[in-house]
């Protein structure tokens, strides 16, 4: 799981570069953090957040791939497809 921890640290650093008040929550995130409920990002802010992540990870995430994303852990797996899927969330996704 240390791979995932690394990815989350990088996600946090991207979050820290965004406008307040979102940036202030960067230190508190983990795999379970909900992007909409906990970080309170609206749909547009999510898209801007993802654009910043795409740059950091030198990748492309098509908008439709975001429909199943709820948590920072989900995002980490999109950014690093080799990460293992969590067992608790495997069903129903």
């Amino acid at each position: 799981m240390s791979d995932q921890a690394d990815v989350i640290v990088r996600i946090a650093s991207v979050l820290g570069g965004m406008a307040d008040p979102v940036a202030q929550r960067a230190g508190e995130i983990d795999a379970e953090t909900s992007i909409v409920r906990d970080l309170k990002l609206d749909s547009l802010a999510v898209m801007d957040f993802v654009m910043a992540l795409e740059t950091e990870f030198d990748t492309v995430i098509p908008i439709d791939a975001l429909s199943g994303v709820e948590t920072i852990g989900d995002l980490a797996r999109l950014l690093q497809p080799t990460l293992p899927r969590p067992t608790h969330a495997a069903a129903g996704r």
């Binding site: 654009m51 740059t55 492309v60 995430i61 098509p62 908008i63």
Partner: peptide
């Protein structure tokens, strides 16, 4: 498949096309 590139940023567009 839809992706947004950074506003008025041809380099970001180029990067995305390369990855796609």
């Amino acid at each position: 498949r839809v992706t947004r590139f950074r506003h008025n940023d041809p380099e970001d567009l180029r990067r995305r096309l390369r990855i796609l």
